[in-house]
């Protein structure tokens, strides 16, 4: 189908076999050229900037490579052993699991809720859709700095502290104490604000795919609009969207770096409070310049993400069709 769009079918097919073959070859050449014209640059970029570094990283992970990215001395699985053996790496996995435990359900809940709300609104639809989607366009770094410096700073004049002062509470050090761990509020809210609009759009698309007739039939059968139809019709029919949102969200959570790096830092005493795997690996590779161990850690993390995604997909039945 795609090829028919690129090369229009020739209007008449001549009976002359020779001419026919010539024409076909020409068409074929055109198709090939068009294919490479479109796919080539992207493929080249992918190879140079994704596949080569991945292979290079895999090789490096079995070598001692300090202050250099040239494999120097083969050390077998030493790098992998040292990463897995480091309690700080295991702590970082626990940290990211806790983070995912907060952020994934909250994001699913709010994006679904927003999508249903925006979908039912009768006026200024475009406005509401874009206003909730807008934060997606904001950079994680900028948002993190706003959260850290303006909204959640520890001074009495910070936004959050002004807000709680209104309720008669003392100012809180949001970022900087382990007990109670208020920094989770900062970390979770910034990501929620940034990504909820994107998942809302996915849910909106899902909502608009649900046939109106189902609701009409339900009303004829005596169902009342609201919770009953949402629970029996809307939510079950959004199953595939929900699974996609869960998977994407979990993978994104495991790759969290920007807000942790910009709110808690990589090297300060705060970093240990919540150091996700990527910040841990960033320190190893780019601060300690131990690129072999850093690469090994990257592959361990990827394996963990793959395993969790596969298990989750299996449990939720990702890719199963509706009637199975």
């Amino acid at each position: 189908m795609a090829s028919s769009k690129i090369v229009p079918a020739s209007p008449k097919i001549t009976s002359d076999a020779d001419l026919n073959a010539k024409g076909r070859r020409k068409r074929q050449l055109q198709t090939t050229l068009a294919f490479w014209g479109f796919v080539g640059p992207m493929m080249l970029g992918l190879i140079i900037f994704a596949y080569v570094p991945i292979i290079w990283g895999l090789i490096l992970s079995f070598f001692d490579a300090r202050n250099t990215i040239t494999p120097t001395k083969f050390v077998g699985v030493d790098n992998y052993a040292s990463i897995i053996g480091d309690d700080q790496f295991r702590n970082s996995i626990v940290t990211i699991l806790i983070f995912a435990l907060f952020i994934v359900p909250i994001t699913v809940f709010f994006s679904l809720w927003l999508a249903v709300m925006v979908n039912t609104v009768r006026y200024a639809r475009a406005f509401f859709r874009s206003v909730f989607f807008l934060p997606t366009a904001c950079s994680y770094v900028v948002a993190s700095l706003v959260w850290r410096i303006t909204l959640f700073n520890g001074l009495p004049y910070g936004f959050a502290n002004n807000l709680i002062y209104f309720f008669g509470l003392d100012p809180i050090i949001w970022i900087g104490t382990a007990n109670p761990p208020y920094y989770w509020v900062v970390l979770v809210t910034v990501r929620l604000w940034l990504q909820v609009g994107f998942y809302m759009i996915l849910y909106l698309a899902g909502l608009q795919d649900i046939p109106k007739e189902l609701y009409e039939a339900a009303y004829v059968d005596g169902a009342r609009p609201g919770w009953a139809t949402f629970r029996r019709i809307t939510f079950p029919l959004l199953r595939n969207t929900t699974i996609a949102v869960l998977l994407l969200n979990l993978i994104a959570a495991f790759q969290a770096f920007d807000e942790f790096y910009n709110i808690l830092g990589a090297k300060s005493g705060l970093a240990l409070l919540a150091r996700p795997p990527l910040v841990y690996l960033y320190n190893i590779a780019f601060t300690n310049q131990n690129y072999g161990a850093g690469a090994a850690g990257g592959f361990i993390l990827v394996s963990i993400i793959i395993v969790i995604t596969l298990v989750q997909g299996k449990l939720l039945g990702f890719g199963r069709s509706e009637n199975q």
Binding site: G154, I175, G176, T177, G265, K267, S268, G269, L270
Partner: peptide, 11 residues
Amino acid sequence: MGNDGGIGLMA
């Protein structure tokens, strides 16, 4: 002593 509560400096 810094926003990490002096931890980095004191250690």
